[in-house]
């Protein structure tokens, strides 16, 4: 089996195709909405041919930050999923399924309950929570019998997520003010976010990118087994730790501003591997356009399926992602990583 994406040129074509699709979806996300501003008016506003103040507000203050948020969240979650899957060697390792998002959610809920609401504080808190979640996942994945069986790891993750969500719910019961703020946030959405929130997560994403570039070669070699990686001069423990920190930075930042958006980290790397082959270096590049493509695409869907109201993005991605999860599990043989 040699798929088209496994050659350098083939990957370039796939990458460009995904990039073009992403550009189209981005444009569509500025044009399509649940409100009064129709596509024609939005387009006229974008081209500077309309002086409609309301349309201007909708396009530049509502839809543009939302699209940018989708770009950031999609790239971050797609890459984080691919990284987590590479480091646990498990195609089902997804931040949402394994409790990384839930860990970050609980951390944010605690912070809100303690009276915090500053965006920047929330990001670092969410990242700490995500890091704790990641380390638990890593410990579980290294446990004999769990790591070698993808489904067991997901079960362990589900139990862990359940526990964290229960703790979060407990907080909701304790404090009514917190409950309203958290409940809204817990659904996962990129709507109603400000430009400030988008820029607030960029430093984390840049730092994560640097960390990833530092270990990407080693991470690719880890796919050949731990001993082979050592033989090639890599340091597996250091690589895993670096990757986990990068995942925590990405998932934590995204969760802090957009809430937990499930299944992006499963669906996107799954598609990226199908298109680019299993080398993590190629799959990661492809996650960059595919992640935002999925998130923004799902976000557009969330605006139109129940017009004039909107479906929360987190609900929609779960509805799209769950069948993919079932499909992966039901496949004759789980793809090994």
């Amino acid at each position: 089996m040699t798929n088209a994406g496994s050659t350098r040129a083939g990957l370039g074509v796939t990458f460009c195709g995904a990039g073009i699709a992403l550009a189209i979806v981005c444009l569509a996300s500025l044009l399509i909405g649940a409100g009064n501003t129709g596509a024609d008016l939005a387009l006229a506003t974008l081209l500077g041919q309309s002086s409609n103040e309301e349309a201007r507000f909708v396009v530049y203050e509502l839809r543009l930050p939302r699209m940018l948020m989708g770009l950031a969240a999609g790239a971050a979650l797609g890459v984080a999923g691919a990284l987590l899957q590479a480091v646990t060697r498990n195609p089902l390792a997804e931040p949402g399924l394994l409790g990384v998002s839930a860990g970050s959610g609980l951390a944010v809920a605690i912070a809100i309950a303690l009276g915090s609401s500053a965006t920047t504080l929330r990001i670092s808190v969410a990242q700490l929570g995500a890091l704790a979640g990641c380390l638990c996942v890593l410990a579980a994945a290294r446990t004999r019998g769990v790591g070698s069986d993808p489904i067991r790891l997901v079960l362990a993750g589900a139990a862990f997520s359940g526990l964290l969500f229960a703790l979060t719910s407990l907080l909701l019961l304790l404090d009514q003010r917190t409950a309203d703020e958290i409940r809204f946030w817990l659904v996962g959405s990129i709507a109603g976010r400000s430009m400030d929130q988008v820029t607030a997560i960029l430093p984390s994403m840049a730092l994560a990118a640097v960390l990833i570039l530092l270990v990407i070669r080693s991470l690719a070699a880890l796919a050949l087994g731990e001993r082979t990686a050592v033989g090639l001069g890599h340091r597996p423990e250091l690589v895993r730790l670096t990757v986990v920190v990068a995942v925590a930075l990405l998932v934590g930042a995204t969760t802090a501003v957009a809430g937990p958006i499930a299944f992006i980290g499963l669906v996107v790397p799954f598609a990226a591997r199908a298109l680019a082959g299993s080398d993590i270096r190629r799959a990661l590049w492809l996650c960059l356009p595919l992640g935002p493509l999925t998130v923004i695409g799902a976000d557009i869907l969330s605006r139109v399926v129940v017009q004039p109201s909107e479906l929360p993005l987190g609900v929609l991605t779960a509805m799209l992602g769950a069948p993919v999860l079932v499909a992966v599990v039901r496949a004759n043989r789980l793809p090994s990583l």
Partner: peptide
């Protein structure tokens, strides 16, 4: 080093594997 328990990701080609030797 060639360990006993070698494993390669699904779909990896021979030349892709050998390239790792240059790392």
């Amino acid at each position: 080093l060639l360990p006993q328990d070698t494993q390669a990701p699904e779909g990896m080609t021979v030349s892709e594997l050998i390239r790792f030797g240059r790392q």
